[in-house]
Each structure stands twice: as C-alpha cells, then as structure tokens.
Amino acid sequence: MREELITSGRMNLNIDPVLHIWHWQIPVYLFLGGLAAGLLFFAAYYTIIGKEKKFTTAVKFAPVLAPVAIILGLIALLLDLKHPAYFWQLYTTVHLESPMSWGAWVLMFIMPISMLWVASYFKEIFPKFDINQNIVGKMLKKVIVKNDNKEGANWDWKFEIIRKFEINFIKNRKPVAWVMLILAVILGVYTGILLSAFNARPLWNSSILGPLFLTSGLSTAAATIMWMSDNHEEKRTFSKIDLMLIVIELFLITHLFMGFLAGSEAKVQAAQYFLGGEFTVTFWINVVIIGLIVPAILETLELLKFKLPVMVPAAMILWGGMIFRFIMVEAGQVTRFLY
C-alpha cells in the first residue's frame, strides 16, 4: 500500500482537491481561435491559388465570422484573467518561451488583418445600399457617401484616405493572403501548443497536440464553410477537405494515445482517464463518434450522391470540436506527476 495525504489541510481555492484553475473560458477560446484560424486559412489559401471567384463563400462570406470569433474568444480570455485590468501587460514584453505571450502577439496582428480582409469585401457583399432608408445606413452616413458612378456598388467611403487604402489593399490581396495564411497556421497550432507547453500536466505534454488542434480547427472551419455555402461545387470540395481532415484527426488521436501508453507512468495514467477512466464515455461518444466518425460516414454518403442535409454533419463536427477542447482542458488539469 502507498498512500500520500496532505495532513495540514491545504485547501487552496481551485488548486485542491484537484487543480481546476481554468474553467469554461479557455476551451471556448481554443474553439473560437481554432475556428477563426481555419476560416482565415481557407480564405487565404483560395486567394493565393487564384480561385476566389469559384469559392466565394470561403473567400468572401465565411471570413466575416473570423473577427467575430476572435473577439468573442478574447472576451472569454479576458474573463478568465483574475486581474483583467492588467491585460495590457501582455504587450509590454515579448517572451518567446511562453506560448501565451507569442499567442497574444499573433492575435494582435491577425485581428486587424482579418477585419481589413472582411472590410475590403464590403462593397461586394453589400453592393446596393440605401443610405437614407436603412437605419444602419443612417448610422453609417458619417463614413460612407452615395456614389452611383462606382462600378458595382452604389456607395463609397466618405474619406479619400480610406478609399485609397481600400484600392491598395484589394490590389495587394495576394501578399496579404500569404501573411494571413502564415498567421492563421500559427494561431491554429498555438491553441494546441498553449496546452502542450505544460510539462507538469502529462495529458497536455505531447507534441501531437499542436497539429491535432490545428487539424481540428481547420475541420470545424471547413464544416462552417460547407454549411454556409449555397454553391454545389464548393460544398462538395469542402466535404472532401473535411473528410480528409477527419481521417488525419483520427490518425493523430490514435498516435496521441499510442505515445501516452508508451510513455512514463504519469502519461500512462493520463491516458487511462480516456481508456476506462472518467472521461472515457464523454470523449469517445462526443468527440470520436459524434464529432468524427458519423460525420465522416455522412459526408462519404453525400459524395456518393445521396441527398442529405449538410447541416447535420457540419453541426456534429462543430459540436465534437467544442467538446474535444472542453475535455482536454478539464482532463489535463486532473493529470499530474506522481510522487
């Protein structure tokens, strides 16, 4: 028998009896960050290969969700801080050894780029805009003016500097897309690295987590685009992409557990939480079956020309991605070194 007890009654809040310092905010942020990274990745990718005309949802419409997701994610992160008024201290230093530090910097750069990307498509998304009728139009009167001469759109920005900037931005969409592509990959990997940098939590301390979270983020983004698109060919393409990503994800999950089971005792115990322990049912049913296997089957049937509502697999993938992050954050904090 071997039993270790703290006899002086340590009961530090959120540390004892098991560590629980990160609550719902972190998984919500990881989900939204991964989703935004995926959406921006696809928008940038299809712009770079010059197929923005063919994949309009991916390039033009779906990226609208990215800044929204990033902002909601940042609000969640801010709520997680115990001293949110000091958040700006993140930007007083660059600490490359701390994933949270460079993650904060990446967010600082990707957020304005994603917003400008969306704004540069405003004229194409809303070409006809009645400034005098619409309530939104009345509010926007301060920044936009009526301009019927403009080809396509019947409005233009009020200030010359914005007009010039927009023309330049649209001209340079490809180089911007390259920057966005790189930042999106870093953001997607970062959501996993954030966890894997913690050596003290055996479940997180695996280098598979970076690619796994990136793949999962891309998969949720592909599902969102598939759901939003009304173009048959675009739907099919993203079904195929998503199917491929699901296969990669299943492969990475298998490797994650293989790595744990071949590791030290602390890692074997961490894996046991998923292989018979308290997270077994939630993980395998929600993440693997509902989030990966069933949507993969539905998407395969769809590609074989069966008529199925695309929202079913898409919603399942989003659900699986969200639950995956919740379980990883919860379970990781339970695992620890044994001594």
């Binding site: 560590l19 310092i21 990160w22 997680d80 001293h83 940098a197 913690f198 003290a200």
Partner: peptide, 12 residues
C-alpha cells in the same frame, strides 16, 4: 501578474 494561471498549470 494578470492572473492567467499559466504558472499554476506549469508547476508539478
């Protein structure tokens, strides 16, 4: 300290 909890997670 902004209270992010990263150091708490990293302490074995």
């Amino acid at each position: 300290c902004i209270g992010c909890g990263a150091c708490i997670q990293s302490c074995p």
